[in-house]
Amino acid sequence: MMETLPTQQNNTQSQLTPFADVQSFESAQRMAKALATSDLVPKQFSGNLGNTLLALEMSNRLNMPVFSVMQNLYVIHGKPSFSASFMIALVNASKRFDTPLLFEYNEERTSCYAYAMQGENKIKGSTVTMQMAQQEGWLSKNGSKWKTMPELMLMYRAGTFFARAYVPDLLMGMKSQEEVLDIEAEVVDDSSSSDLDDMILPPVED
């Protein structure tokens, strides 16, 4: 399912900053309580006021709708992480480049890098290869999508590398869900669906 995020807004006066002062915190608690009682929010926020407050804070920092943040925020090994597709969407929504992220594969479709144009300059991210995936042990993980969806995983990892290199402030130091699952073998709490079919598919160039 294709998904896009609204463009980030420069005017943040209407954004709620939960931890700015006592009044803001009280307002945020009321909003978080309403969100946490909804059947539409992911499991890690349902009935969890603390997690929902943190989602509101992230929404404020990113200038993104809170529901978009909640739908793309995963708790793995007790740590929050964004989906790789959401990181790519953050880059595109930031409008910091003249084009959205594009992806270029080699002829064998075994390597990929992300890039964006800034005027006539091609801003390139690091190249990700299947050899790298093999050497890093990503292919050997139980249920690894690298075995069944290698081209998609190359795209997601290349987009993550680009975002970390050129817009680290948008990531707030967090890893992608896919990176955490590749690095760590045991998932403590991945209460949202990990199906890649529902993630954002950005433009690709051969």
Score class of each variant (00 low, 15 high):
residue 67 F to H: 04
residue 146 W to M: 05
residue 24 S to R: 08
residue 134 Q to K: 14
residue 76 I to M: 10
residue 165 A to G: 01
residue 26 E to L: 14
residue 165 A to F: 04
residue 84 A to T: 15
residue 73 L to T: 03
residue 128 V to P: 02
residue 12 T to Q: 00
residue 53 L to I: 06
residue 25 F to G: 09
residue 165 A to M: 14
residue 84 A to V: 10
residue 127 T to C: 10
residue 67 F to K: 04
residue 89 A to E: 04
residue 169 D to I: 03
residue 3 E to H: 14
residue 164 R to S: 09
residue 196 L to K: 06
residue 122 K to D: 07
residue 49 L to A: 03
residue 122 K to F: 01
residue 1 M to E: 15
residue 160 T to E: 10
residue 69 V to R: 04
residue 6 P to W: 07
residue 129 T to Q: 04
residue 107 E to M: 09
residue 58 M to K: 01
residue 82 F to L: 10
residue 9 Q to K: 13
residue 178 E to H: 04
residue 187 V to Y: 07
residue 123 I to N: 00
residue 143 G to K: 07
residue 122 K to I: 12
residue 43 K to R: 15
residue 197 D to W: 12
residue 8 Q to M: 14
residue 80 P to S: 11
residue 77 H to P: 06
residue 194 S to G: 12
residue 39 D to S: 15
residue 64 M to D: 02
residue 161 F to A: 07
residue 40 L to N: 12
residue 110 T to Q: 02
residue 53 L to G: 05
residue 159 G to Y: 08
residue 141 K to W: 05
residue 21 D to H: 05
residue 61 R to K: 10
residue 203 P to N: 11
residue 7 T to L: 11
residue 176 S to R: 02
residue 115 Y to S: 05
residue 39 D to H: 11
residue 26 E to Q: 13
residue 62 L to V: 06
residue 119 G to V: 11
residue 152 L to D: 08
residue 154 L to D: 04
residue 93 A to D: 02
residue 28 A to T: 02
residue 159 G to Q: 06
residue 130 M to K: 12
residue 73 L to F: 10
residue 53 L to P: 05
residue 107 E to Q: 09
residue 118 Q to I: 06
residue 139 L to Q: 07
residue 169 D to S: 07
residue 81 S to C: 15
residue 104 E to G: 09
residue 140 S to Y: 02
residue 130 M to R: 13
residue 75 V to T: 09
residue 49 L to H: 06
residue 119 G to S: 09
residue 49 L to K: 05
residue 130 M to C: 07
residue 3 E to S: 14
residue 125 G to R: 11
residue 114 A to S: 14
residue 64 M to Y: 05
residue 3 E to M: 15
residue 69 V to P: 04
residue 153 M to V: 02
residue 146 W to E: 03
residue 30 R to Q: 10
residue 142 N to P: 13
residue 81 S to N: 11
residue 132 M to T: 06
residue 121 N to Y: 08
residue 39 D to W: 08
residue 32 A to C: 07
residue 188 V to D: 15
residue 81 S to V: 09
residue 190 D to M: 11
residue 161 F to L: 12
residue 17 T to P: 00
residue 96 R to Y: 00
residue 48 N to G: 02
residue 130 M to P: 01
residue 175 K to F: 00
residue 168 P to R: 02
residue 162 F to D: 01
residue 123 I to F: 01
residue 95 K to A: 07
residue 151 E to A: 11
residue 164 R to D: 04
residue 57 E to Q: 10
residue 167 V to P: 06
residue 133 A to M: 07
residue 91 V to S: 03
residue 26 E to S: 14
residue 181 L to E: 06
residue 162 F to I: 04
